[in-house]
Amino acid sequence: MTQGGFRDALRRKHRFRPVETLPAVALLAVPLLGTDYYALGTQVAISVVFALSLDLLVGYAGIVTLGHALFFGLGAYATGIASVHGWGEPLSGLLLGTAVAAASGAVLGVIVLRTAKFTLLMLTLSAVFLAGEVANKASWLTGGVDGLVGVSTWPLLGRFEFDLFGQVGYAYASAVLVLVWLGMRWLVHAPFGQSVMAIRDNPGRAAAIGVPVLARLVLVYAVSAGLAGLAGGLQAEINQFVGLKDIGFELSATVLVMLALGGAGRLYGAIIGPVAYQVAQDLLSKDNPVLWQLWLGVLIVVVVLFAPGGILGIADRITGKAARRTARRMRPQVRT
């Protein structure tokens, strides 16, 4: 292939498709449903940001973690605690939450990424339990089991008061989501994202062609942690409350499930998964939360056994892209 032809092929692979505007259309459609849906829409938008951050780690970098809520919680508590102590400006609060989570992610990444597989899983699990217990016991700072009360968020940009219907909150969360989504889209298509995927597929070969494996994984870990912290900060500002469940293992498991339902390792899997999960939960669990848990469990098992690609995997199969994908997956992958 000539150099120009190669460049064109790359461009085609990464070009913006019309169908990719659908999430934005969906965001704009929520206000048409009336004020009842702002709260759900906001929660979904926050989950999507959180799931996107996890997708970067699990889907793109191939690092399975059971402790991602650690960073969500850190961001939420950082933003919330700043607000309780007199700084409730939303944008800088978000920045603070993101920075705290990203810094912790960098430190933790340097420590835990030297290990792999089961040990890595256990380290992330211990880390989230440790953080949860610290948040529980340090009640002078975090409010302990009662949660962080007294969070008050100042008007957005000094003008828009967070209203009771959640209109401003929804607009705020949507704007953040669109920015994160565009940023993630750019990141995974950039050489950085491509090199991370190269590490996921074959760390040995990636190292051999000159990718600084550990440094890059730590960077991904920090970015992912920062985005999770952003989601946490966003939730703290809009709900004006932070609780122990925001930094717990169950949230880690839930977001992993959301991502897998949509399809890990792809941008739009992290968007469609949380949407499907939370809309279904809203429809089904109002009457009986136990039945919801039962069917969710069954659904996860079925997805893992029969549709490992999640919703988007099924969509692929229907539209006939499956053949190409399996052909790519069949190529021998040597792991070191």
């Binding site: 597989k117 498991a253 499930v257 897998a260 039945l291 848990q293 969710l296 469990g297 893992v304 490992p308």
Partner: peptide
């Protein structure tokens, strides 16, 4: 022999089912 993610998810699903059945 499946990926770690699949195994972890499968187990989470199983725990959900078990705890929901127990509660019911």
């Amino acid at each position: 022999g499946r990926s770690e993610l699949d195994q972890v998810l499968f187990c989470i699903g199983l725990i959900f089912v078990a705890s929901a059945v127990t509660r019911l």
